[in-house]
């Protein structure tokens, strides 16, 4: 893993340095010549990050892997589950997040968060307690909605569906 990690880190900072900074960090013409321009700092960090990434990759080739493992480490809690299953679960979770963001525009914040909570409770393997899951997924978002809209006057997005239905 050490090599992959080193290359990923190097690549990340490399993309930032060579692709993102030239395009997205403009040098305004009115900053006086002696004052550091906006791209000085991100460039310095990216170069440092690339250096660290290369060092990581190099060390992973030359030395024995880290001896002491963390009990919270990904490898330690993986517990022999096949990689495919793990990736699939991760994809589900990311899809649920993305689905939430999209759904807010259509069905509003509350309905979307009820759906997301429901999905997450299923994904963490809580389905044995159907009663609790359904109860929590329904009540919690509504309670939070009432709290925030009455105490802080937050106006959560209602979604375009509500407008279409003429609500």
């Amino acid at each position: 893993m050490g090599l992959v990690r080193g290359i990923t880190v190097t690549a990340f900072f490399g993309i930032v340095l060579f692709v993102l900074i030239p395009v997205y960090v403009p040098r305004p013409n009115f900053i006086p010549g002696f004052a550091p321009p906006p791209d000085m700092w991100p460039r310095a960090i990216s170069i440092l990050g690339m250096g660290l990434g290369l060092l990581l990759a190099a060390l992973s080739l030359s030395r024995k892997p880290q001896a002491d493992t963390d009990p919270e480490d990904a490898g330690a809690i993986r517990d022999g589950t096949p990689l495919g299953t793990l990736v699939l679960r991760f994809v589900y979770a990311v899809l649920a997040f993305a689905g939430f963001i999209v759904a807010v525009h259509f069905v509003g914040f509350i309905v979307a968060s009820i759906a997301l909570l429901f999905a997450m409770l299923l994904l963490t393997g809580q389905w044995q307690r159907k009663g609790t899951v359904v109860l929590v997924a329904l009540i919690l978002p509504l309670v939070l909605y009432l709290f925030f809209s009455s105490a802080l006057n937050t106006r959560f997005p209602a979604g375009s569906l509500a407008t279409i239905l003429g609500l």
Binding site: I101, L116, R155
Partner: peptide, 29 residues
């Protein structure tokens, strides 16, 4: 397993309410 999803929903509402901003929620996720 029950707590973590609840925390997620708390965060979604709280973060949205700080600046009434969906962008902050996207940043969170």
């Amino acid at each position: 397993g029950l707590m973590a999803p609840i925390v997620l929903i708390l965060c979604l509402f709280g973060i949205f309410a700080i600046a009434n901003s969906m962008y902050d929620v996207i940043v969170l996720l």
